[in-house]
Simulated assay, not measured.
Amino acid sequence: MPNDVQFQVGKMNKDPRHMSEKELDQWQIQCAENARNYLFSIGQPLVYKRPDGHTVAEYQNGQILVVR
């Protein structure tokens, strides 16, 4: 049976423990965007909890459904 799972291993240019506050903020934003793009690429929604306490599923087409 062929292995359908593919993964990629990367190496960070700078250790997060040694980043300035600005670099750390940019890195966190980039990580969130990468996760969002990956989920959308495999047809899955981005699920998160909003500040108002509702859990929502956001789809690539912009649709947002309140899950809970």
Rank of each mutant, 00 (worst) to 15 (best):
Q63M: 13
W27C: 02
N37L: 15
A57N: 06
R50M: 14
Q26L: 07
M1V: 13
Y59G: 07
N13E: 15
K49S: 09
M19I: 02
L65W: 07
A57R: 09
C31E: 10
N13R: 13
Y48Q: 07
N37Y: 12
L24W: 07
N34C: 12
P45M: 05
F40I: 02
E23S: 02
Q8Y: 07
V9A: 09
P2E: 15
P51G: 07
G43N: 06
I29A: 13
M12D: 09
Q26W: 00
K49Y: 04
F7I: 07
L65P: 03
I42P: 11
K11S: 02
N61V: 01
I42F: 06
H54T: 08
V56Y: 11
Q63V: 13
Q30Y: 05
Q26A: 12
G10T: 07
R36E: 14
Y59A: 03
G53P: 06
V56D: 06
H54R: 14
I29V: 04
N3G: 05
W27H: 00
M1K: 13
I64G: 05
H54D: 15
K22N: 12
N13Y: 09
N3A: 12
N61L: 05
R50I: 00
G10M: 10
L39C: 09
R68V: 11
F40E: 03
D15A: 04
N34M: 11
R50S: 08
E58D: 03
Q6G: 11
E58G: 03
C31T: 02
S41P: 07
Q60P: 01
P16H: 00
V56S: 10
M19H: 03
K14H: 04
E58K: 07
F7M: 08
D52S: 12
R17N: 11
N37V: 09
Q63W: 03
Q63D: 15
H18G: 10
Q26D: 12
F7Q: 12
M19Q: 05
Q28W: 05
L65C: 06
L46E: 14
G10L: 07
Q26F: 03
R17Q: 12
D52P: 08
H54L: 10
Q60K: 12
A35H: 13
Y38S: 03
Q26T: 01
V67R: 10
D52F: 11
N61I: 08
L65V: 14
N3T: 11
Q8A: 13
G43H: 07
Q60N: 10
M1G: 15
M12I: 03
G62A: 02
Q26K: 04
S20L: 04
V66M: 09
F40N: 04
T55C: 05
Q28P: 00
S20K: 00
S20A: 01
T55W: 08
